[in-house]
């Protein structure tokens, strides 16, 4: 990639066939990735698509002779920034899907119109500009011994002030992020006794809140406990999950599972009964292996 022929192609007005193929293939993928970023309903998928697009862009940087930038793109952008995004997505709720239905009247049409006009104008502007000669980066990259050295030479001489200011900016951003997200506790935390007294005063829920999970079947925190009539009680799930709507209702499944379990135990008892009274059917032998497997799984679940 850093060979002499590569440098030469960087300087030409037309690129090598290899780069052309790479451009058309990866460019198509990049555009698809960008479109997916804005069209995916789940934020996680959007983030992944964007990461893909960024990696492709990193490849394009490399192809354009910006080796340092290409690496930084992968490391900083795809590695750090996109991870930051994913963290926040996790915080906000990874499973929540956005509705793509537009709520603002005319917003989508206006956006389409503006986007189309903007894009057409931008492309027209590029087409209008006289961009026929590409000098290539061969000379610039080799002047200080390499791309990174060249960048460093510029960064610490010509752009040193901007570099310093960027450092200040980063520190400010870090402090700002901390200030924004850090919640200062301003009063003493309540003791257990005080909390119990408050519960009595309010009179809504005297005993401790019920725990989530269906005993002997599910004990995940997003599964509400079942009331005696089999309906789920949302009280058992923590409020964050309740607000996100991330509650897995397994009451129906539990009932159906129960029914299936009873059916199976009936079958087993019936088989035992039938062997004594009616005799086995032709299908019992084929069913016995399945029954055994079922039984194994039931036992497994019961132990959980």
């Amino acid at each position: 990639m850093t060979g002499l022929s590569g440098l030469n192609t960087l300087a030409a007005t037309t690129t090598s066939t290899g780069e052309a193929v790479q451009f058309w293939v990866l460019g198509t993928v990049a555009v698809i990735g960008a479109l997916c970023t804005i069209l995916m309903r789940r934020a996680v998928h959007s983030a992944l698509c964007l990461a893909g697009t960024m990696i492709i862009l990193a490849v394009f940087y490399l192809a354009n002779g910006a080796y340092f930038l290409g690496v930084v793109q992968i490391v900083v952008y795809t590695g750090a920034i996109m991870m930051l995004f994913l963290f926040v997505v996790m915080l906000v709720g990874v499973t929540a899907a956005d509705s793509l239905k537009e709520t603002l009247k005319g917003q989508r049409w206006l956006a389409a119109l503006c986007g189309l006009g903007f894009g057409v104008l931008l492309i027209a502007g590029i087409g209008h500009a006289s961009l026929s000669t590409f000098n290539g980066l061969g000379a610039a990259n080799t002047a200080h011994g390499g791309n990174v050295e060249g960048l460093a030479a510029l960064l610490f001489t010509k752009y040193v002030f901007a570099f310093e200011i960027t450092g200040a900016l980063l520190i400010t951003a870090a402090v700002g992020a901390m200030v924004l997200t850090h919640k200062e506790r301003t009063e003493r935390s309540l003791t257990q006794r005080e909390m119990a007294e408050r519960r009595v005063r309010e009179g809504k829920q005297l005993p401790p809140l019920p725990a989530p999970g269906v005993y002997a079947r599910h004990n995940a925190v997003d599964i509400p406990g079942l009331l005696p009539d089999g309906t789920p009680s949302e009280l058992t799930v923590i409020s964050t999950l309740r607000e996100r709507g991330q509650i897995r209702d397994v009451s129906a499944k539990a009932l159906s599972d129960l029914k299936a379990l009873e059916q199976r135990s009936e079958d087993r008892l019936g088989r035992h009964g039938s062997t004594s009274s009616t005799g086995p059917a032709t299908g019992t032998t084929t069913g016995s292996t399945g029954d055994r497997a079922d039984r194994d799984r039931d036992e497994e679940e019961a132990t959980r």
Partner: peptide
Amino acid sequence: SRMHGNLDGQIIAFFVM
């Protein structure tokens, strides 16, 4: 940057990052 044959564009891109 490639078109002009110098690294200033890459520096700017770096700052943008």
